[in-house]
């Protein structure tokens, strides 16, 4: 049987969900026989290629994030999102309580540890948008909440997908913290 092709990305997040994926320990050996990791933060290829499963960690925080989410969606058959940021908006969406100017000012002036730091200004930098969970930008097929989701939850979700089912976490595995 052909391996299931997986692409993934982390958007506005802490990488904890991908770390939690690596925490599945020896189960990763069994998975390696069944899935093939194409562009992911772990493999570090930059261009997405068509895949069976797309995975997103993190919320939509700027125009670049929106673009990446759309690219993944366009390249995969099933889109799964990991973690509270991607599922609900999570901790990063608390930025929505403030204006972009306030956020940047706080980051680059008030809290900055380097002197004379300025808000960077370049056409290459994507403008900030209101923080949103992924399902407000593209269609999402399955969700794995948690901050981060436990290795058990991630393994459960992947295993269900490999069995051909859309995973819904059982109550006892589901966490929002």
């Amino acid at each position: 049987m052909a391996k299931v092709k997986v692409i993934s990305a982390w958007l506005d997040a802490c990488a904890g969900c991908h770390m939690s994926f690596l925490d599945i320990d020896e189960a990763i050996i069994g998975l390696a026989d069944k899935i093939e990791l194409l562009p992911t933060p772990i493999t570090d290829f930059k261009e997405f290629t068509p895949a069976d499963v797309g995975i997103i960690e993190g919320a939509i925080s700027n125009e670049h994030d929106e673009e990446v989410a759309k690219q993944i969606r366009a390249n995969c058959k099933i889109l799964m999102v990991w973690g509270d940021c991607a599922v609900f908006g999570g901790i990063v969406s608390m930025r929505n309580l403030f204006s972009n100017e306030e956020v940047l000012d706080r980051y680059y002036s008030t809290e900055s540890t380097t002197s004379n730091s300025k808000v960077p200004c370049s056409e290459e930098l994507p403008p900030l948008v209101k923080v949103k969970p992924i399902n407000q930008v593209v269609k999402v097929d399955c969700y794995v909440p948690g901050c981060p989701p436990s290795a058990k939850a991630i393994l459960y979700a992947l295993s269900e997908l490999l069995e051909g089912r859309i995973p819904v976490l059982p109550s006892e595995t589901m966490r929002y913290d």
């Binding site: 509270d84 609900f88 399902n135 901050c147 006892e172 589901m174 929002y176 913290d177």
Partner: peptide
């Protein structure tokens, strides 16, 4: 604001428990 990760009551919250019970994995 019902994000649980930094809430004192996480683990003791009735709203959170119902979210789990109803397998609320997105909104």
């Amino acid at each position: 604001n019902h994000f649980c990760m930094f809430c004192e009551k996480s683990g003791d919250c009735e709203l959170q428990k119902l979210g789990y019970q109803y397998q609320m994995d997105n909104v």
